[in-house]
């Protein structure tokens, strides 16, 4: 270092207060990022299951299943996530359980992710050519077998790009749970800022960390897409 920059360069860098704050709190930032990843992973996982079920439910002829799934999707797509977090954490969850910020964050983000995923799933299934269902049924498969072996694997391939979009959105949206004091990346940024007032350095670091996480997610999606390519 000294050979490259000389003593004065090192001294200069060390004199920047923001850089010192960021470098001495890097583990603190990483801890927040880890919690962001935990909330995201769990929400995406439950959201996927929820979305698959409600997406299929919305396509059935059963009026009760259709009604419930439509109401659920409409509510979570039609209201802001920020409001949903406040409503569930302060208003609804306390009636049923003693949910801490982390659990509440996962529940709200899962429900929100599930609603969007349901529509993605439905669009994916409807994008599979009608002839595929007919071919499967003509061989003697029942609807469930045709769905499992023929339609869903093809729908899965179609929905990877929009699904990935949704997962990236969830990752970024988890920043909103800062408001219920779940100590993820954004809240840790906020706490540091209120102590050191180094806005550019602190929020810059937070932004870069979000960017790295979403980029990795996008690369992962590209990889899956390439693995599933058959043509």
């Amino acid at each position: 270092m000294q050979l490259i920059f000389g003593n004065s360069m090192i001294d200069y860098l060390m004199s920047i207060n923001g850089l010192q704050v960021v470098s001495s709190h890097i583990v603190y930032f990483l801890g927040g990022a880890l919690l962001t990843l935990e909330i995201t992973t769990l929400s995406v996982l439950f959201g996927l299951i929820l979305g698959l079920m409600t997406g299929l439910a919305k396509m059935t002829k059963n009026p009760i299943l259709f009604g419930i799934s439509t109401a659920y999707i409409d509510f979570f797509r039609g209201t802001p996530l920020f409001v949903q977090i406040l409503l569930l954490y302060f208003g609804i969850l306390p009636l049923f359980m003693d949910a801490g910020p982390f659990l509440a964050a996962v529940i709200v983000c899962s429900l929100n992710c599930g609603a969007y995923t349901a529509e993605i799933v439905r669009a994916g299934i409807q994008a599979v050519d009608r002839g595929q269902m007919e071919a499967a049924r003509s061989l003697g498969m029942n609807t469930r077998q045709a769905m499992t072996y023929v339609i869903l694997p093809q729908a899965f391939k179609i929905v990877i790009p929009p699904l990935l979009n949704e997962f990236i959105a969830v990752l970024k949206d988890t920043s909103l749970v800062a408001t219920i004091s779940a100590e993820e990346l954004t809240l840790r940024g906020k706490l540091l800022y209120s102590t050191y007032y180094e806005a550019a350095w602190i929020w810059g670091t937070v932004a870069i960390m979000y960017f790295i996480m979403t980029k990795v997610l996008a690369l992962l999606g590209d990889y899956v897409e390439r693995r599933l390519a058959t043509e």
Binding site: D129, G131, E134, A135, A136, S138, L139, P153, Q154, T230
Partner: peptide
């Protein structure tokens, strides 16, 4: 059960692309 005994070939093939 009945469809298992009746094979069908379509104009647009409808092979499973995956």
């Amino acid at each position: 059960k009945v469809r298992q005994q009746v094979g069908m070939v379509f104009q647009l093939f409808n092979l499973f692309p995956h």
